[in-house]
């Protein structure tokens, strides 16, 4: 039986930037046992030597030429912005540091 604790779910929610309520955390943790059991079936087969498939079609080397095409206008770019100022997206103070 696989399982995840409430704290495990809380950690994952933090990684996924979702601020879950206590109820949600507990609820999800309780559901995860059966979900993980279902998906853990992928481990039943001996997969040694089997290649992983990341792309369903065997395409390679799909490139575009280095050519500039018109961008969106700043109005279009900012059209969905929840807040803006001086032609920039306005966001609340950022706590973390950039990578």
């Amino acid at each position: 039986m696989s399982s995840l604790s409430r704290d495990d779910v809380a950690k994952l929610a933090n990684l996924a930037r979702i601020e879950m309520t206590e109820d949600e955390l507990v609820n999800l943790a309780s559901q995860f046992g059966s979900i993980l059991d279902a998906v853990a079936r992928v481990q039943e087969l001996n997969l040694d030597g089997v290649k992983a498939t990341s792309h369903p079609q065997p395409l390679e080397n799909i490139f575009r030429q280095d050519v500039v095409l018109p961008s969106l206008s700043p109005d279009q770019a900012l059209s969905g912005a929840p807040a803006q100022e001086d032609q920039r997206f306005r966001v609340p103070q950022i706590l973390g540091e950039a990578e």
């Binding site: 979702i18 879950m20 999800l28 979900i35 998906v39 997969l47 290649k51 498939t53 369903p56």
Partner: peptide, 29 residues
């Protein structure tokens, strides 16, 4: 949210091979 959490788990370090990696191999089969 359920699927985001499940996916975050399946890709997280230490679980990738067992979950996502195995799933990609099943895909090959």
């Amino acid at each position: 949210k359920r699927r985001i959490i499940l996916g975050t788990y399946a890709l997280s370090s230490g679980y990738y091979d067992a979950y996502y990696g195995s799933a990609q191999k099943i895909r090959t089969l």
